[in-house]
Design a protein around this nucleic acid. Structure first.
Lengths: 132, 132
DNA sequence: TGTATATTTCGTTAGATGGCGAAATAACGA
DNA sequence: TCGTTATTTCGCCATCTAACGAAATATACA
């Protein structure tokens, strides 16, 4: 399941590739406050579910996030791996450095909003929840 | 000349994109010992001059290296920018973390060899320098 | 001035990437 | 069990990227 990586550079590049898309970085930043359901990340980024799913699998493949399944929902959280310490430090540093970013601040605000809705309300977004 | 970047995330992603190619990472690692002529990096990585030139311009665009021209030769060195501190820390951390990488160690050895030749000897590689 | 050499720019090509929607899968609830 | 919903997988398409060689540019040296 997990990628076999024989060199540090190879692993490092897997990580930097994962970090080289702004939507993935936004997702990572959103996760620094705690775990999120996939559907919340979908709502935050406003992309197709299949697209977000792919993004999260890239982050997971790179070892940056972990996931757990709870019923129909899949929750993602920042990985807390203890190996490859310098890469974990890079992630921490990155998240810290991006704290002040306009988009990240805006995302925080939107995430608070999204959180307040609850998952059941959020997840039937396909049908239009209020005025159908 | 330098890229206008209005958001931290955008700048961050420019940097991670620059770091998401193993040849560019190898070039960066090679530069941690001091400045190098483009032709030395060409020799180290074994790619076409135009390819290396492109790689170095991407690193430069991202603010990771600076260059100076001396006659026919262009020398690159790690950038020592003082702004965007967290990104500089990330580069330092990355270089430190990659010190032990097999490829980096091998590159160090080869670079020592390349250095011992001198630029004049090195640069007429097109013609075959010894047994033509 | 003219030739050689180092580097950059340009155009092309093969392969990677990000996006989507449709279909498949998994799990809840009636 | 059957329908609904959340997520993933798949196939497709548009765009980006890394690589090359050829041509352009810049500089040294004869």
């Amino acid at each position: 399941m997990s990628e076999i990586v024989n060199s540090k550079i190879e692993h490092y590049v897997t990580v930097t590739k994962a970090l080289s898309d702004s939507n993935r970085v936004r997702a990572l930043c959103a996760l620094r406050k705690g775990e999120l359901c996939l559907c919340q990340i979908i709502e935050l980024l406003g992309l197709a579910p299949s697209t977000i799913s792919k993004h999260m699998s890239i982050l997971k493949q790179a070892g940056l996030v972990n996931s757990r399944k709870d019923g129909r929902w899949v929750y993602y959280r920042l990985a807390d791996k203890k190996d490859e310490i310098f890469i974990q430090d890079i992630i921490k540093l990155s998240l810290l450095g991006l704290e002040q970013d306009q988009q990240v601040v805006a995302d925080d605000r939107q995430m608070a909003e999204i959180n307040s809705w609850g998952l059941e309300m959020l997840c039937k977004r396909n049908k239009g929840c209020c005025e159908n």
